[in-house]
Design a protein around this nucleic acid. Sequence first.
RNA 1: CGGGGCGUAGCUCAGCUUGGUAGAGCGCUCGGUUUGGGACCGAGAGGCCGCAGGUUCGAAUCCUGUCGCCCCGACCA
Length: 589
Amino acid sequence: MVTRLSQLFVRTLRDDPADAEAESHRLLVRAGYIRRQAPGVFAWLPLGLKVRRKIEAIIREEMTNAGAQEVHFPALLPREPYEVTGRWTEYGDGIFRLKDRKGADYLLAPTHEEVFTLLVKDLYSSYKDLPLSIYQIQDKYRDEARPRAGLLRGREFSMKDAYSFDYTDAGLDISYQAQRDAYERIFARLGLDYVIVQADAGAMGGSRSEEFLHPTPIGEDTFVRSAGGYAANVEAFHTEPPTARSYEKLTPAEVLDTPDTPTIQTLVDVANEKHPRPDGRAWTAADTLKNIVLTLTHLDGSKELVVVGLPGDREVDLKRAEVAFAPAGVEPATAEELAANKGLVKGYIGPWSASGPVLGLEGSTKIRYVTDPRVSDGSGWITGANIHGKHVFGLVAGRDFVADGTVETADVLAGDPAPDGSGPVELARGMEIGHVFQLGRKYAEALGLKVLDENGKLVTVTMGSYGIGVTRILAVIAESNNDAKGLIWPKNVAPFDIHVIAATKEPEVYEAAEKLVAQLESERYDVLFDDRLKVSPGVKFGDAELIGVPVIVIVGKGVADGNVELWDRRTNERTPLPLDSLLTHLSTL
RNA sequence: CGGGGCGUAGCUCAGCUUGGUAGAGCGCUCGGUUUGGGACCGAGAGGCCGCAGGUUCGAAUCCUGUCGCCCCGACCA
């Protein structure tokens, strides 16, 4: 069936919607693809659904190629499985919860690890049944604190989630690689630029995790990459500690007057003025050891103060600190919390004093003290002497103080060396469009998914989970494929193959257009036909540009001489073409 | 949760300062004239002015409260 614009359920808007900021959001609403129903929740109109189905089709094909089988779970699920894995609690406000008439708890699933695991447990009990990869394309629900940018971060969104089940670690590696390869094919077919970055395995447990990020300034993730091929989410970035140095030849630490130096900059200035380095080089912020007090909130609600020591030219990156201290929450300590510990001299906090350690579980404050990897054995620092107006110079890690541990909380700066030695990194923003994850045995263990192996012994299954945000991908494609006039879909996800415009009102033009459209249809092209009789050409052109089908055929007065125009939406080129060569020409596009 | 902005017709907005019968453009309906870049004329339909209190003879407008939306941040497999 040819789709006629006169019949299509759509209304394009002349003005930009006032509540849409992101390009994709603005254009998808204006061109009549989606409509907002509630914050982060959208209705899909025919145009939007068609694009969505095309993306899904590509994903399905590649899932099949990767050996995964499609299943489908409900979005509405009971509490119990999520209770067993602890996620009913862990998700906190992040999920939609509801009760049935009997008062039983349900949730709208934010992701489906639990029930996939249980279904496999239900059906399978032998190693002979593995490996198994199954997936679904299904709507997920998360009660985001702040949904934004239309489809880019919604509270209801479509996701392809796949899960692999193996009984050996080597098997998991193979299953993981199959999904990872499929993702590369999917994003290549969608024409989506992506970077695979190492991700934080963090709270989900498991060993290996990579994110597919689409580089874009409106992305929500910051990642680093080196020219030599290293790429990681900043949260997963790992600082290679400098090799330990011998401190035999180093001079002893000395406490010096540094009045009015509550900040790193004032300290550096005073140090250079009053206590210049013996070797003539100027002190810099990187020579100072800054000690930041953080408050951790543990899962049981208890609070703990912790001090992190890091080079003075670095700030604490709270996201990295969250990862470092997970599952505890991290916040900067408040002024009250600082004041409550009289061992801490604001502005002059340090691990050491002449009378013994101050910071650290063994120190006088009994506050846990952890340091940046750069604070390696043998490194010397200027740091607070725990006396107002005094700092200690040449304080050497390993000799004068020992931290309770090493922790990555410092921000990553452009130019930092990649941990694999592939050179300095640069920072960029990206939008997460896919995530592959080796879960390991966490869920199988919690839910009791075991199979009998070759020796008749029960072994716990090891799992992977693999997600692609279908609706987010659609938005990301729209985000990077548009111009001032509207959307410009890549060919393989466009809602139609060809958009035919009857550009004048002459009956001959309409007859010719009708004939052409019928012919295109018989050639299996999916055609959108702008057959609106009383609509002026300008409006038709404008709508065609907004809707963004990449190939447009204009049927106008030229048909009298057997000519039409082929309009390339992307390049904006219009090529006059004899009608009888149009089909041949289209087949080359 | 913190900061900022905004709620009036399907969409974009004016009106509010200084209280007095609800407005414009686009879209929609009918008739007519138009038709290669968002045409024109005429006639219409469409609004609990977010919601609730209050002040007032009278409230879209002033006051109080409340709900919601958008943006930034925090948060976010």
